[in-house]
């Protein structure tokens, strides 16, 4: 980025000359190209804005929500492939929570469907495998009596429902509360600090990466193959050095604010009737799945 100053309004200067005049500068705006147009700021969570909605679910203690999500995911994952009734029960449960939380259902569902392509690649192997025989650990003893398609349905539905649970958690809990909840549930402090820094700085560093790529694309739009890879390597190195130096500044700033080795904790946690109700509901739902 040397010599390329990025101003907020998009205007910048570099020296150049017109015919018959000496080299000079004047501010101008670059034609926007396709690299620059879809400039999306990277946020810690895709649902950062949703976490600021005011609703009963948002107001719940983060620990209760984390535990409920864990219980539901465990219930979904450990049960046999979900039967239609179970699947419907679970969908209604999630939709009800989303409604109580006043979340935009369409956006939530759209995001949750992103898990399906990944799951489908493996899920579609199951029918093949059921018909093809037993080359694997579980199949060696021919324990697979089930229909392969049922297995595929099990994988897809479980992946989707679990992902939906986690997205509901992410959409109804502010990042700081979620991290605090994880900390008080026993996740080691160093690890929570790593998570916190990822959440806090990925936007900044992602934007830096983005402007580096724009700089690269505007100087060498036709890079391919090894040359492109070498350039990407240099971008990576550049970001490493800058992040390292940012880390030094961040630490100095933290020391200046009284950092003593642990991140400060706000204690607004509560475990009231609503929190207990949420966990109990999750437990009931999970047991219903397990027993049915």
């Amino acid at each position: 980025m040397a010599g390329h100053e990025h101003h907020a309004d998009g205007f910048h200067q570099h020296p150049h000359e017109h015919a018959g005049t000496p080299p000079h500068r004047h501010p101008h705006h670059h034609r926007t190209d396709e690299v620059a147009v879809p400039h999306q700021h990277t946020h810690a969570t895709s649902f950062e804005s949703l976490t600021y909605i005011v609703s009963p679910v948002h107001a719940l203690d983060a620990r209760a929500k984390i535990l409920a999500a864990l219980v539901l995911v465990l219930g979904v994952v450990t049960t046999a492939p979900l039967r239609p009734a179970e699947f419907a029960l679970f969908c209604i449960l999630l939709a009800a929570v989303a409604a109580i939380a006043r979340l935009p259902l369409r956006r939530l569902v759209g995001r949750s469907l992103a898990v399906l392509p990944v799951a489908a690649t493996i899920a579609l192997l199951a029918p093949l495998q059921a018909s093809g025989g037993s080359w694997n650990a579980a199949g060696l003893a021919a324990a697979w009596s089930g229909d392969g398609w049922l297995v595929a349905w099990g994988i897809l539905s479980k992946a989707w429902l679990s992902a939906s649970c986690m997205l509901l958690l992410a959409a109804t809990t502010r990042t700081a509360d979620l991290l605090q909840g994880l900390r008080s549930l026993g996740v080691p402090a160093v690890f929570v600090m790593l998570l916190a820094f990822i959440a806090r700085y990925v936007g900044v560093l992602g934007d830096q990466l983005h402007s580096l790529r724009i700089a690269l694309a505007s100087r060498a739009p036709h890079l391919r193959g090894r040359a492109l890879m070498r350039a990407l390597g240099s971008i990576t190195g550049n970001l490493f050095v800058r992040s390292y130096e940012r880390g030094e500044r961040v630490y100095a700033a933290m020391l200046a604010r009284g950092y003593t080795g642990t991140l400060p904790v706000s204690t607004t946690a509560r475990m009231g009737a609503a929190e207990v109700l949420l966990i109990v509901t999750a437990l009931l739902a999970a047991f219903a799945l397990a027993l049915y």
């Binding site: 820094f197 990925v202 940012r246 630490y251 950092y259």
Partner: peptide
């Protein structure tokens, strides 16, 4: 990490974690 690294190095490591996360957006 706790035994061998100073607080400052751990903070540095945390910023590096954010960097790795951001770099995972580097498509090729």
């Amino acid at each position: 990490v706790r035994r061998r690294l100073s607080d400052g190095t751990i903070v540095m490591m945390a910023v590096m974690a954010a960097l790795i996360f951001a770099l995972q957006m580097l498509n090729f």
